[in-house]
């Protein structure tokens, strides 16, 4: 809604005061033409449901009967909802632990698998394998056979002399940790994006650098990193958004419960249970808008900070 307001402000501010040159006008017309599909999608598919969901967040809506306007009640109810606050805590831990580790791993592996090694194509594919599994139900069974009480991890520990280790997936103090491992382990997507970014580094830069006698580490910090900062930035922004919305893995591994004892109850999982399980779509929508504000705030901070470390060529 605020975005619409801003749009209006921009429009009225421009209102005939600047005399646009012909070329600029042409460029503007071209821009809108290129944006046409996106604008159509925004109007027809995205904005409507978003606006409706905001309206629903101000109502009591059980999905089956017409929504009933209740003002800010849903938002106020969140303040006294312990399970919701717990789910926020779980989500924040997840975001702040798993995103940095995952991105560091993805970047390191991408650099390692970029060039100068035999069998690169094969290794890349192998490293992407876990990410292919995606939201497969098989993950639930796999995670149990890995981290269950008689899973492969505990069998390994037993060999090392650690007996009676707990079930990692079924203990509230470790269950979230296994999901963080799962997320780090599926670093394929950011890795591929880093790889694609590394492709854009002109080889001539490296050649010039090696003529200057720069070592590999210096080449990396002086050439590679600066050139791919836009891509690093993209991955940071998107992985944070993605992690805040984490749902599928917790949903599958915990069988939809967010258990044990709400220890893997992500914000979106609680939102889903509230909306579809308990038929409180009004409350769920209010939760979604709170999440949107949180994510938007983090994204805005990211964009602000990007001026200090992201280098564009334009």
């Amino acid at each position: 809604m605020s975005a619409l307001g801003e749009l209006r402000r921009l429009r009225s501010a421009k209102g005939g005061t600047t005399v646009a040159s012909k070329a600029a006008k042409q460029e503007e017309r071209a821009a809108y033409l290129f944006l046409l599909p996106w604008l159509a999608g925004l109007v027809l598919i995205t904005a409507g449901p978003m606006a409706i969901s905001f309206y629903i967040s101000l109502t009591d809506y059980n999905l089956l009967q017409a929504p009933e306007f209740v003002g800010l009640q849903n938002y106020l109810d969140m303040l006294g909802d312990d399970r919701l606050q717990n789910s926020l805590r779980v989500t924040f831990v997840y975001v702040f632990v798993s995103v940095p580790i995952q991105l560091a791993a993805a970047l390191a592996i991408a650099v390692l698998l970029n060039r100068g090694m035999k069998g690169l194509a094969f290794y890349r594919s192998v490293y992407y394998l876990p990410s292919l599994l995606g939201g497969s139900v098989a993950i639930a069974v796999l995670w149990r056979t890995l981290f269950g009480s008689d899973g492969i991890v505990n069998r390994g520990l037993a060999v090392l002399g650690v007996e009676n280790a707990p079930s990692w997936v079924a203990d509230p103090s470790t269950a979230l940790g296994t999901l963080i491992i799962l997320n780090v382990w599926t670093f394929g997507a950011p890795m591929v994006i880093f790889l694609a970014g590394l492709r854009q580094v002109p080889a001539s830069l490296y050649e010039a650098a090696s003529v200057d006698g720069a070592g590999r580490w210096r080449q990396f910090t002086r050439i590679t990193l600066p050139v791919i900062t836009p891509i690093i930035f993209f991955n940071v922004v998107l992985q944070i958004i993605h992690a805040f919305q984490a749902f599928t893995q917790a949903f599958i591994v915990s069988g939809g419960s967010g258990g044990p004892s709400d220890s893997t109850m992500f914000f979106t999982l609680y939102l889903y249970q509230t909306g579809f399980g308990n038929f409180q779509m009004g409350y769920a929508s209010a939760m979604a808008w709170v999440l949107l504000i949180i994510i938007a705030a983090f994204t805005a901070i990211n964009f602000w900070a990007s001026r200090f470390w992201v280098f564009y060529d334009d």
Binding site: R144, G148, P166, S167
Partner: peptide, 13 residues
């Protein structure tokens, strides 16, 4: 103990 029961998912568990 709770951690054993928390592993219950499908019938095989």
């Amino acid at each position: 103990p709770a951690s054993v029961s928390a592993e219950v998912a499908s019938f095989d568990t």
